[in-house]
Design a protein around this nucleic acid. Structure first.
Lengths: 197, 197
DNA sequence: GTCTATATAGAGATAGAC
DNA sequence: GTCTATCTCTATATAGAC
């Protein structure tokens, strides 16, 4: 792993756990065992470090999503697998310590550049498109009972995932998060235990 | 309004728009037209200022909720009114600038005292209890189609409200938020346009 | 309760040697 | 690319006069 990648990894980790405004170049220097000035060599300003964090995180996330999208199984199974990515995030470390970069930086949007905010918006857009596509696919393969407003459902699901991760930090941890996503997935599941939860 | 109240108001406003870690005693001093040292007289440390912000915000929120709970109309109408409190928050200022204190501080939980985090958890607990109660009431008066897991639905709604407010800051503003809450409310509405959203 | 003044620490960032 | 050294600014917080 290059030094640049190591810094990005450390920065992503800190953004997810303490937030961007509570993360310093000194923190990054200690985690990567170099000096502050060396961190600045790779990322001259904090603003463009944060841009890089978003880009890198998005790339990783959508790479995982794309892999899920091209995997076997029903559309509902794939939707559940996408949601499972967030559950994994929630369960990391002791559990209930880590949220999504997008939700964390959304709260700190004023500290970002215009481009940083645009990258977050692009993440949300692409994510909701992926979920709407999964609902369409599920309507075709019969695994998903399509909601009357697929885009609204997708946005609601994304909002609940982001909010659920943040709330799980202060209240209930992974169990809370599980209890958020269970009913939402159940509400679009086609087969046996059908209800609108 | 006492100076103490003015500081709390300014602090709440800043927490909702830029976050706690981006808010300084200098900011508060300017907004309340006093000096930094005078702010410290009312709130010795930032940590206990934030505790007071949460307490004050919770009191205001649950006062509004209690008023809604004791108002006429169906349980569904009351549930919609509670959700409307968040829509009002989202619409304030230009729109899409302001989130809930709980969601903002949830992201910055590491900067809070243990007591501050406990206050956030108490907010979530009480909020979900209020929503579960409204679902029960709606099942009795016929205005709400109860989900199979009322607690899970309540938690999902709260998570979506918190996450929706944050995401609306970077993507879509109040229109995005509306599109999050519309289907969620629709999914538990009993009467005419019934679907599972 | 508010003020001036200050202590102390840490932030982001840059210069220039190696 | 990494380092030491430093700049400048701002942060939280305190002391003590009015």
């Amino acid at each position: 792993m290059s030094t640049r990648e190591a810094i990005l990894t450390a920065a992503t980790d800190l953004v997810q756990t303490v937030g961007a405004n509570a993360m310093s170049f000194q923190d990054l220097a200690e985690r990567t065992r170099i000096r502050k000035a060396s961190v600045h060599h790779h990322f001259p300003t904090k603003a463009n470090l944060l841009e890089a964090v978003i880009e890198n995180y998005s790339a990783g996330y959508f790479s995982a999503v794309d892999e899920i999208l091209s995997s076997p199984g029903s559309a509902f199974d794939r939707l559940r697998a996408v949601v499972g990515l967030y559950m994994s995030t929630c369960a990391k470390d002791g559990g209930g310590r880590r949220a999504c970069v997008v939700g964390m930086l959304g709260s700190e949007a004023e500290s970002l550049t215009e481009r940083g905010r645009a990258l977050l918006a692009a993440f949300v857009e692409r994510n909701q498109r992926a979920i709407v596509d999964l609902i369409d696919a599920g309507a075709r393969d019969g695994s998903v009972r399509p909601p009357s407003d697929p885009l609204g459902f997708a946005r609601g699901l994304i909002a609940a995932l982001q909010g659920g991760l943040v709330l799980a930090r202060v209240s209930g941890g992974p169990a809370f998060f599980q209890s958020v996503i269970g009913p939402m997935l159940g509400s679009v599941r086609a087969s046996p235990p059908g209800d609108r939860g």
